[in-house]
Simulated scan of single mutants.
Amino acid sequence: MATPVLTPERLAASYSYTAYRHLIDELQAEGKTTGPQQSELLTNYTRLNVQRMSRIDKTIQLLPELRAAVAALPRRYAWLIITEGWCGDAAQIVPTLEAVAQASGGHITTHYVLRDENLDLIDQYLTNGGRSIPKLVVLDAETLTEAASWGPRPEPAQHMFLELKSQNLPFEEFSTQLHAWYAKDKTQSTQQEILQLVQGLA
């Protein structure tokens, strides 16, 4: 028997998407962000991320084949999404994951947890030894065992990230290039990879 990733009680204590967004807005009003580290820089990143999430929430158009795939899932899944408000990649990806779940007709529920409050969870899903987010862990809704995982970013963005990192660019330049890629991609790469993940579940 596979071991559950977390207890039902812990899953129940997670945030809904609405509650996650509300938490970020409340912290922003106090000049703060999520997580133990607080700085003006992180608060400014979070402000930008709120704008990014709101824009994607309003404009996202799901691929018809992705809509069909999630609506046809043979069983129910709980999507555990490990994130933080200051994370730029999360701002680009989390609204897409939420839109996919909303299109599933109840086959998928989403559950958001903050990385730095759940280090034992993220440490099960390290990327090249690092606690990169966002991370999607697909759980069987009945057993809470892992069915799949994905993240922290679609492959073309991950490739670009590693390439830019190797060039030792200043963070601002690095970040600008990465977010320009996300803007041009319009969530298509994320949707294609989530489609492959969902098709793997069927």
Rank of each mutant, 00 (worst) to 15 (best):
Y125W: 11
Q38T: 09
P170L: 07
P134G: 13
Q192V: 11
R131T: 15
T109E: 06
Y112H: 10
L97T: 14
G106W: 10
M53S: 13
T127E: 09
T33W: 07
H179F: 00
N49I: 05
Q196Y: 10
Q92P: 05
A71P: 02
N44K: 14
E9D: 13
L23H: 12
Q37W: 13
Q38R: 08
Q191C: 06
A180G: 08
L6C: 10
E193Q: 14
H111K: 06
T3C: 09
V5C: 14
W86S: 13
L73G: 11
L114Q: 07
Q158A: 14
Q196F: 06
Y17D: 09
I24Y: 06
A72N: 04
R67K: 12
R47C: 01
D123G: 11
E173Y: 00
R10T: 06
D25G: 13
W181V: 00
Q167L: 10
L42T: 03
D123Y: 11
A69F: 08
A12V: 09
A29Y: 07
L80W: 07
E30V: 04
D185Y: 01
E9G: 02
K58Q: 15
Q191F: 08
A183V: 05
T33D: 09
R67I: 10
L42N: 14
L126G: 14
W181D: 00
P4T: 11
E40G: 15
G151N: 03
L197V: 13
T127G: 05
I81D: 02
Q38Y: 04
E173F: 00
L178S: 12
S189W: 00
G130Y: 15
A103N: 15
S132A: 15
Q167R: 14
Q38P: 02
D185E: 02
H179P: 00
L73M: 08
L119Q: 07
R67S: 15
Y182S: 08
S14I: 02
A12Y: 01
N49W: 04
T18P: 08
Q188F: 02
T34I: 04
A180S: 10
A29F: 04
V138P: 09
V198Y: 03
I56L: 09
T46C: 07
E26Y: 04
I81A: 01
L144W: 08
V198N: 01
D57G: 05
I81H: 07
D89C: 01
A180D: 01
L126P: 13
H111N: 10
E146A: 07
R115T: 06
Q199S: 03
K32E: 05
E173G: 11
L42R: 13
Q37M: 15
L48S: 11
M53Y: 09
A202P: 12
T143S: 15
H179V: 00
V50Y: 03
L23E: 10
Y182T: 01
E117I: 02
Y17I: 12
H107A: 09
R21G: 15
A103C: 11
H179S: 03
F161E: 00
A12W: 01
L195F: 14
T110H: 02
P36A: 13
A19H: 03
P152Y: 12
T110A: 00
T190P: 02
I108L: 03
E84A: 05
E172V: 15
A148C: 15
N128K: 09
E173M: 04
A29E: 06
A71W: 03
K135A: 08
M53T: 13
E84S: 12
T127W: 13
P154T: 12
A147H: 04
V138S: 07
I93A: 10
D140R: 06
T190G: 09
T59I: 11
G129D: 05
I133K: 07
Q102S: 13
L119W: 02
